[in-house]
Simulated scan of single mutants.
Amino acid sequence: MPRTAVAAVLLTAGLLAVPESALAATSFTVATDGSGNYTTIQAAVAASSTGGVITIKAGTYYGQVQIPASKSGITLQGATGTSGDVIITGSVPQSTAGPTGSATVYNLAPNSTIKGLTMQNTYGAGSQALALYAAGDRQVYRNVQMKGYQDTFLSWGGTGSSQIRQYVYKSYISGVTDFIYGNGAVVIDSTTIESLNIGSSNNGYITAAATDDSNPYGFLITRSTVKSAAASQTVALGRCWHAGNAADAIGQVLVRDSTLGGHIRQSGAWQDMSGWSWRTCRFNEYNNTGAGVTNGTSDRPQMSASTAANYTAQKYLAGSDGWNPVQ
């Protein structure tokens, strides 16, 4: 008899005191060589229950993985703990598939965790092409790699003041154009953020926040390393994305306690977008080090220590329920 059926019988008989939902959680192994329960991640996701754990053996897995909202609490984890050993990959542009269809991993599940693996979209220049579309609240990404070119990582909670939260810890994110973007409350902590070198005097933009003006918190980059092999002063920290030309998309980004490479622009570190001045958004830095910190230019706003006390990782993620996944 299947484990869940046994549990149901015991519960009915009053012999188990734990909730049925906890017992229903499933564990599966995915392996390309057939040594697991499934050969594709999507099949394991489909079979998994709320709170299920999917362990993925080393290998390269092609095609999109969609995790629906009904799989709350699901965990996807690489078997070895080395993120480069498990690669989920695609090469689909948003120009033909739309943002949802282009995303290599499309995660709607709240309370989910993805760790120890790589998510990438290898399409390259010419179109938005997402590695990760994160669209669920209270999501954790730990020890992952997100690799792309344009729009690598999207955090999107829909229009208006509704906001989702994600925590990215000890990971790696790469791209060229707006490769960390959206309107969620996102903390990127102890992570390497790399702008790919395209050999241009305009070597791209790291963030494009579209935070609703009713939300105090958007993107926080903290305790991280911002690097590139690109030429000195050719990369912007971000630009002001008024999604759908909405006047209330007043993006909020703080880069604090991080190391900035010399590729970061002195003048023009924050840039306009689609006719909207960067000054319509809420962009700041605090307590950074490295060759890319400001040398006193007027367009590099610095947050005061007293204000920064209210812009911590915990504050960004707490919401109304006190969520605190911060390591």
Rank of each mutant, 00 (worst) to 15 (best):
G136W: 12
R138M: 07
R138G: 01
R138K: 14
R138P: 04
V140T: 15
Y141L: 10
Y141V: 01
N143E: 11
V144R: 05
Q145K: 15
Q145A: 12
Q145H: 15
M146G: 04
G148I: 05
Y149I: 04
Y149T: 10
Y149A: 02
D151R: 13
D151A: 13
T152G: 08
F153D: 00
F153P: 01
F153M: 10
L154K: 12
S155Y: 14
S155D: 08
S155N: 13
S155A: 14
W156C: 00
W156M: 00
G158T: 01
T159Y: 12
G160A: 04
S161Q: 07
S162D: 08
I164G: 02
I164L: 13
R165E: 01
Q166Y: 06
Q166L: 08
Y167K: 04
Y167C: 05
Y169Q: 08
K170P: 00
S174D: 15
G175P: 04
G175E: 03
V176L: 05
V176K: 06
D178A: 10
F179H: 01
F179C: 00
Y181R: 10
Y181A: 00
G182F: 12
N183V: 06
G184A: 10
G184K: 01
A185D: 04
V186H: 09
V186P: 02
V187Q: 04
V187H: 09
